[in-house]
Amino acid sequence: MQEVLKKKSLEKRVLAPRESRKTIGNINVQNPRMVCRNVDVYYDDKQAIRKVSIDIGRNEVLAMIGPSGCGKSTFLRCLNRMNDTIDGCRVTGKILFDGKDIYDSSVDVVPLRAQIGMVFQKPNPFPKSIYENVSWAPKIHGLAESKAEADEIVESSLHKAGLWDEVKDRLDQPGTGLSGGQQQRLCIARAIAVSPEVILMDEPCSALDPIATAKIEDLIDELREQYTIVIVTHSMQQASRVSQRTAFFHLGDLIEVGSTDTIFTKPSHQLTEDYITGRYG
């Protein structure tokens, strides 16, 4: 609970009450996986996100960039309703997943989160063995009824996360004993294990060293073939390396969306340009 409160106070940057700014660039994509329209997020009565509208395409990596406190993490957490766990958080607007509003009262977060997985800023493996870290979610969902099925899922997930060769001999050891980069890949394997369709990544490399970061970035590129990935990052280099589309947030507004190339070579909005040229942020 305390942790939640801390997080809340961090994100509760006061925004002056004002109209949202219009987003520049094309927010639409062909055959979108997720569609967000006019999403507002409030913490109690403070607004954190203003009228954000954006589509998320299939098999693409969407990078969300912007200065700290701009609301990109908040928005990311809306996409699989992780904000539900924060007291006083309220989301309005529409977020459609395969055509269905995920904030509809009939939608159940449990299967929703099984379809939209998440990887966090700090690696957070469970205090269990490596094997159980990966097999736990499939087990509770009933995806792995037998030991053989579980073994299969564990192996393929760890393979996909590029961790199998490093840990295959010590699957029964605690996941917390791995190095930071390995832990983060274990968390990615954990997310993959329930066969999600979308993976949300909240600054997955900010706690890692450059070598581990490079491994994760390669992994993201591979995973794109099977999953839709939305990644929040502080590093513009990372955004330009891994993503196809980029969205720039500023003080709760989605300022500009476009293909990564466009955003980084000829941004349309002054704020975007200032940010990517390193004038602030």
Binding site: V110, G142, E152, I153, S195, Q226
Partner: peptide, 27 residues
Amino acid sequence: SSKNKSIAGASGSSRRERTIDIVNRRL
């Protein structure tokens, strides 16, 4: 069959339905 499940995300949409069906069945 387990292989199908575990890599469902990669495969066609009919298989994808299956994963969520399994999840929903246990809900």
